[in-house]
Amino acid sequence: MIRTTGILADGAIRALFAGGKLKSEADLDADQVQPASLDLRLGSKAYRVRA
């Protein structure tokens, strides 16, 4: 069975990058991929979002 929802382990996140399914303009830092999460970095431009 293939799941389409849920949490991905760090190995699965790394595999998606290695397979080209996920891409980043800059190389990932070693500490960006954590167990079940991907820490995102801000780019050179940021926008204020009022909430």
Rank of each mutant, 00 (worst) to 15 (best):
M1E: 12
M1A: 10
I2H: 10
I2R: 08
R3C: 06
R3G: 05
T4M: 11
T4F: 13
T5R: 12
T5C: 04
G6K: 01
I7E: 07
I7P: 00
L8P: 00
L8M: 11
L8V: 00
A9G: 05
A9R: 03
A9D: 06
D10R: 04
D10E: 14
D10L: 01
D10G: 05
G11H: 10
G11C: 08
A12P: 00
A12T: 03
A12M: 07
A12Y: 02
I13T: 02
I13R: 02
I13L: 06
R14L: 07
R14H: 06
R14S: 06
R14V: 02
A15H: 06
L16H: 04
L16S: 02
L16K: 04
L16G: 01
F17V: 04
F17G: 00
A18P: 02
A18L: 02
A18N: 06
G19H: 10
G20L: 07
G20T: 07
L22D: 00
L22W: 04
L22A: 06
K23I: 07
S24D: 06
S24C: 12
S24W: 03
S24M: 03
E25N: 03
E25D: 11
A26H: 11
A26L: 12
D27F: 05
D27C: 02
D27Q: 09
D27W: 03
L28A: 04
D29Q: 12
D29R: 12
D29H: 09
D29P: 00
A30S: 08
A30C: 03
D31A: 14
Q32S: 15
Q32I: 02
Q32Y: 06
Q32R: 09
V33Y: 08
V33K: 05
V33E: 09
V33C: 03
Q34L: 13
Q34A: 12
Q34I: 15
P35L: 09
P35G: 10
A36V: 01
S37R: 13
S37L: 13
L38F: 14
L38V: 04
L38G: 03
L38E: 01
D39K: 14
L40S: 08
L40T: 10
L40W: 09
L40A: 12
L40Y: 06
R41Y: 08
R41K: 15
L42V: 04
L42R: 08
L42I: 05
L42T: 08
L42K: 05
L42Y: 09
L42A: 15
L42G: 13
G43I: 07
G43E: 15
S44H: 09
S44M: 06
K45G: 02
K45R: 13
K45Q: 13
A46P: 00
A46T: 11
A46C: 09
A46V: 12
Y47R: 04
Y47L: 15
R48H: 12
R48Y: 14
R48F: 15
R48A: 15
R48G: 14
V49T: 13
V49M: 13
V49L: 15
R50T: 07
R50W: 13
R50V: 01
R50D: 14
A51C: 02
A51N: 08
A51L: 11
A51S: 07
A51K: 06
